[in-house]
Every structure is written in C-alpha cells, then in structure tokens.
Design a protein around this nucleic acid. Structure first.
Lengths: 230, 230, 230, 230
DNA sequence: GATGAATGAGTTTTCATTCAT
DNA sequence: TATGAATGAAAACTCATTCAT
C-alpha cells in the first residue's frame, strides 16, 4: 500500500461500513460500495478481508497515538478530566456511538483472533501508561493524594470502559451518568487534594466538522484513549 | 416448542458451538453437529437462526434468575463478596472463559439487534436491583457506611464488567487483579463499617459436576449475575 | 453419497463436462449445467471440486474392474487381441476420442496430485497383472514362445499407450497404424507359435447404444484397460 | 518482440513457473514473479497468456532443433543409443522430471488447442524423420538388419514415450526399466547385425552448468527429442 | 519499455432455509 | 417429529487484461 490516499479511502470506507453493518455483517462489497473503486481492488491492496480489517485496526491506533500527544502539555488534573471525557462520551453523539459500537465488535473478536488481541494489548499498554503518568505527575505536583497509580489507573479504566460498554449494549444512560458522578465524587473525595478543582465536562469539544474523514479522525481520536481503551 | 428435552439439547449445543466458534462464525450446522438431530430440525423448532439465538439468550437468563434466588438468604456482606466473585472469575477456568467470551460476542451484537438489547435491558435491571438491594440491606443492617446505593451499584458493576471484558479481550490478568484489590480496598475503606469483615475470595466453588448440561448451567448460572451483567 | 442415482447423474455430468471443456477449464458450473440440479448440490455431495474429480476417477476405475472380468474366459490369444484393441481405438470414434482426451488430462495432473497418482498406481498394477496373466497363460498353453512376461507386458503397454497418446495429441493416425502393424508383426514373428493365428481387429464391438450412461460405461470400460491403462 | 534478452527472461520464467505449478495452475503473476519485471510487461510483449505459452512451446522446439544437429555426425548405432537415452531419462534427475512433467501438461492441452497441436505435429515430423534417417543410414551402413524404418521409428517412439509418461504419472520406475531392457534386447536380436555393439547408457551426460538458462536449455534440449517427442 | 493501479467476469464455496417424504 | 436432499443468494477471492502515466 504505497498510495496514501487510496489507503485512506479504503480505511474510511471500512469505518463507515463497519459502523453501518457491524463486524459480523461486514462484507468486502459493502466496503467497496463506499469507495469509488471496485471490490477487486481491495484484494489488490490487501491479502484478505481479515488482513484489511486488521489494517483498519492499526489505522485507528495510529490516529490514537497522534491524539495522545496533543494533551501532553496540560496539567495532570485537566488531562485526567479530558481522559474521563474520552470514555464517557455523549450518547446523543451518533458519530461516537457508532464508532464505539464498531470498536466493541472488533474487540469482541479478539479472543478468536490472535492479531487483534496483540493490537489491543499494545494499545492497552499505552493507555495504562498514559493514565499512570498522569496520576504520577499529579502525585508529584501535589494535586493528588497518596495512592497506587497502577491500581487506580486499572480501576478507572475498567470502570470507564465498563460504563461505556453497558451504555452501548443496554441502550440506557444510567451507567454513563452514575459512573461519571461516582467517579467525580471518588476523585473529589479521595484523589484530589483540597486546593485543586476537578474541571466540569468539556462540552465545547469538536465543533462542526462534518465530513467523514474528519469524523473518522475525531471519532477514533476521541476514542483513541478508548479505541486504545477499547 | 413443546418438547423440553429437545429444547435443552439444542440450547446446550448452541452454547458449545458459540464457545467454540464465536458468534460471527456460528452456523446452524455447527449447532446441529453437537446434537444427535439433524440441521433441519432446528428450523422446525425455531423460525430462524436469529430466533434460535435469541431463545438461547433467554435460556441463559432463565438460569440466572434461578441462580440469583440461591444467595438470597445470605447476609449482605457475603452476598456482596459473592457478587464480586461472579464477575472477577478465575482466568484459568477455561469453562468460564469461553462462556464469558461467548456472552461478550452476543452482547456486542445488541446495538444491531433490538431484541438482544431488550433482553439485556431486562437482565441489567434485575442485576442492578439485586446489587442495590444488597447495598440497601447492608445499609439498614449497619454493615455499610452511608452511600448512594444506585450510584455505588452502577459504579461497581461497570468496574467489574469492564475488568472482565478487558481481561477477555486483552488476555492479561492485570485488570482482574488490580480491580479486585482496588475494589476490595474501596469497599474496606469506604463501604464497610469497622465491625464487619469482607470475606476473601471463595475458591471452593462448584465441585465436580462434569457433564455438559451441568457445565452449561454452572457457567451461565455463575455468570448469571454476569450473563445478566453482560 | 447414499443416493446411487444422484451419484451417477453427477458422474455422468462430470464426464461430459470434462470431455467438452477439458480438465483445465472444468468448472463446477459446467458440471451442474449438465445436471437438473443446482451447483450448490455438488458441494453438498462432495467436499470440494477436487474431491468430486477424484471420485470421478474412482468411478471410472470401478467400471474398469467390472469390464476386465468380462474377457476372463477367452483363450489367451484372443484376450491379447482384445487388449490391443482397447488401446488402439478407432480415431473416428468421437466418443472414445473425447474419453481418452479427458483421461489424458487427468493423468497429466497426477504428478501434482498425490491422490490421482495413487489411483493410477492401483489401476496400473491391475492392468499389468492382467496382461502378465494373459501372457503366462499363453506360455503354458503353448500358444506363445518363451519370453519374459513382465518385460513383454511393460513393453506392450508402453507402446500401446504411447501410440494412443501421440495420436491424441498430434492428431495424426500414423502411430496407431504403425504401432498396430508393428506390434502385430512382432507378435506374429516373435510371440506366437506357428500353430496359432492372431485375430484381426474386432470392429464388431460397440453396437448402437447411444444414451450417455451407456456411452460413459463403454467409454470408460473400453478404456478401462486403458483408463486403468491410463 | 524486439528485445531478445527480455524474451529469454520471460521464457525461462515461464519454464520455471510451469515446472513448479503445472499448466492448470500457471498464472501470469507466477511467471512475472520469476522475472525482475512486472506482470503488465508480459502483456506488452505478448498478446495474451495463451500467446505467451504458445511462444514458450516454440522456444522449446527451437532449442530442440539446435540439439538435434549436434549428434548428426555420430554413427547410426550411437545416434540410436543417444536417442533412446533422451527418452528413458534418469528418474532421479529432478530437473528432467519436472521438465517432462511440464511438457506432458502442455501436450495434454493439445487436443483443445489447435496451435499446440500444430506445433507438436511439426515437432513430431522432425523427430520421426530423424529416427528414420538414423535407421536408414544404419541399414545402408550394414549395421542394421532389414526392416521398415518408418514402422520401426513409430514403434520405438511410441514405446519410449509411453514408458516415460507412465513413469511420470504413476511414479514407478518399472516402465523405464523394462522398456529399456526390452528395447535393448529387441534391438540386439532383431535390429543389429552381429558385428555391431549397442552402447550402454551414457551417464556421463551434461556436466556442471548450473544457471537456470542453461538448465532450461539442457532440459528442453535433452527432451528435445522428447519435447518434440512430447 | 515499464509499471502500479484498476477492474469485470468468473470461480469456488458457504449457509440459512425449504420441502417432500 | 425428523431428515436428506436441494437451492438461491451471496460471500471471498482470482486472474487475465487494460490503461494512464
């Protein structure tokens, strides 16, 4: 795959097809239909459908890695808040919803797909490392009370991920809401030292971009933490 | 569906096929192969494959409901401990692992399948109700400190479910371990009043039943909380 | 494959498709088209196209075995003559020509197909055994001069097969003719004792059967020696 | 086709691909892969794959023609011996085996391919002419007894070719061995006059050339008699 | 000359589903 | 109830061939 634009076209088409049909019903035809190319071209660029999907997985993670860098200079507390927001997405946001849905299906394949699992592992390592870094920096900066960053990171990610998944699969907002407030309280009471404030949800995010490429980027980027979180 | 034993045979076969192949690769033939009946018979008993799988979902939940009753008379603290153990299963237990894997795949279909979603919703309602009941009873009994049972329940379930899913998809034990110790600490410090002890993990679980039907029942029962939790 | 008639239908269709298209261009569709059944049925009865073709090979050999028995009671000299005629077929006979052509293609696959090779080996063993038997019996009966039946059998089969193949591939009658007269002379001068006559070609064979099943049987039977000879 | 070296490269690649995959599985890609050029270039040089393969056939025959000249000055008996050796190749010789295998497949296509058939016809004419020439010269020189050179040539070629083909397709050495000794005996007793000796097999053949082009040439040359013989 | 990208027409194979028995 | 046989629709994948550059 030399041609970057062809690759992007296929990746975007894969993303759309995945969102619309789900992994189980994802067909090469459905992907090609979202392209101005033929189905056979997919097999020119990728050895098999599985290879294509695995590449798509990589594609998402690439974007996540870029995204992660963006917040690097924020102070720990804000990075933490932004981290939480990545997970506890707004369920009204159809774009995000379908993205997370697609990711969930891909993740559910991992137990049967060594390559997926490895990709997830790599991504999870990165995600935990970042959260642990945030927590450690906060500790050093005196923003956080004493705690075990490794344990807290795992606990936070599990709760955030679990809330998101239950939201997606059950279709009720209760988990997002209760976990948000529960975590906020937890963080407030347990984690933050008295002199720091935990920022409220940043709803000003993502303006009005609408084209698919941008949405895909945002979607995956935003999930990045989660995509990787996924 | 008149014949109860035929139904059970098909359900058990579906369970096995699902564990072995995963939802995406689940075929009517694979189910029939685990039966001493023919493939056509499946379509005599069920209108379609989707119908069969939805029934299978019900089948799991039925067993969950039975299971839930079993612990009803235990004191709240022990019920809570048993609840946690349902989720944070032993990853060495192949039976449980494949069961949770299968459930994860079914759950991942829910966003594309209204019926699945409804089933999950019902099951989740039951699950949260139970945990809230446990927490409320504990409050009344003076075993737990003051807290919001609804929030705590959601938070606990999200964290437990998230940990299990990450374990399954990433193939590392870190989440199970850290979340177990994190939650234990949390419960100890925050939830339990001084005079109560949180019981250690119950590893004396399920004796030596070996036939498939029993395993399926145990599997789903045990997950029940989780099946429903799923 | 329980149903004998379905099997025969598919085998006959395979034979026809093979004659018409050749092995290289043989498709499942072409076979199904010569059937009143669907293409998918082929894959219900056979695991793959290769499996089907290998079964077809067996089918031909089965018929050969039956055929061989037929001549068993003739005296050696006549059996020998009939043997020669099996190979040096009449090139005007379109039925035979297309049959031998199909066989040649299948045989040419053997170096790349272990199963084909094994089938050919079995068939060749039988063929040589028969010819050696004929020659040995002739020796005992005093119809043949002293010679090494094993060597003579191999030599005769090689020459007959070679002649037939060159006829088929080159499209000229020269080999059939010269080898027939050469072998006749050889047999006359070298093999036969003075008191025996070598019968002239038996052109009275193949009556007027016309339906495909019969043609297939005759074809393969006749080649049998050759099919197996192939 | 202007560029001779490009042509040679493609021909050699075709030879290798044919040996490795067989005609049925021969693809343009497989040929290009054995070249340092692209697949598209094949279609710049040749109108179609069929055209390419037909050219490859010609390529083999060209080399045969050259080869034939080489032995022209030998005395008839030695030329005859060398002729026999061309056909009854050493089955341990992997190079030769794969070459003859490839040729067999091409020949098996001839009944469906007018052009192939014509090429074979031309080659066969040359082959028989040579053998007849050898036999006639031997007759004149008094090395051979009286016989019909045309008939003997056809008989010899058929037997040699048949033996080689059965060896290739059945995978047993019996035909090569028995036909070699049978023919040797035949020639001794019938063909040679008392004062001449039939030379033993020439195993000193082909020295140590190793590059592919040479191998191809040797292969085809050696077979030449047989390539054409094929 | 040379190639990467592209494709249409086809190929094998799969599978839920139906139906006569 | 139960099944073997049957199939249509679609899936993944292949491949000779074309074409703009």
């Amino acid at each position: 795959m030399t041609d970057e634009s062809a690759r992007n076209e296929i990746m975007t088409a894969t993303y759309e097809a995945l969102c619309e049909h789900g992994y189980t019903e994802l067909t090469a035809q459905a992907i090609a239909d979202r392209t101005d190319k033929s189905k056979s071209l997919l097999f020119y660029h990728y050895d098999s459908k599985e290879d294509l999907v695995a590449s798509f997985f990589d594609f998402l993670l690439e974007q996540f890695d870029e995204r992660v860098e963006e917040n690097r200079d924020l102070p720990p507390v804000e990075r933490l808040a932004s981290f939480v927001d990545w997970f506890l997405y707004d369920p009204e946001d159809a774009e995000r919803t379908s993205f997370h849905t697609a990711m969930l299906e891909l993740r559910a394949q991992a137990p049967h797909n060594e390559r997926f699992q490895e990709q997830l592992r790599r991504s999870d390592d990165a995600l935990r490392a970042i959260l642990e870094e945030i927590l450690s920096e906060g500790l050093e900066a005196g923003s956080f009370h004493e705690h075990d960053p490794e344990e807290t990171a795992a606990l936070l990610i599990a709760a955030l991920d679990g809330a998101r998944i239950r939201q997606l699969t059950i279709g009720r907002d209760v988990y997002l809401e209760e976990v948000r407030s529960g975590i906020a309280a937890e963080i407030f009471d347990e984690l933050l030292t008295e002199e720091v404030d935990f920022p409220a949800r940043d709803d000003s995010v993502e303006g009005d971009e609408t084209d698919d490429a941008a949405l895909a980027r945002e979607g995956s980027g935003a999930d990045g933490a989660g995509g990787s979180g996924d």
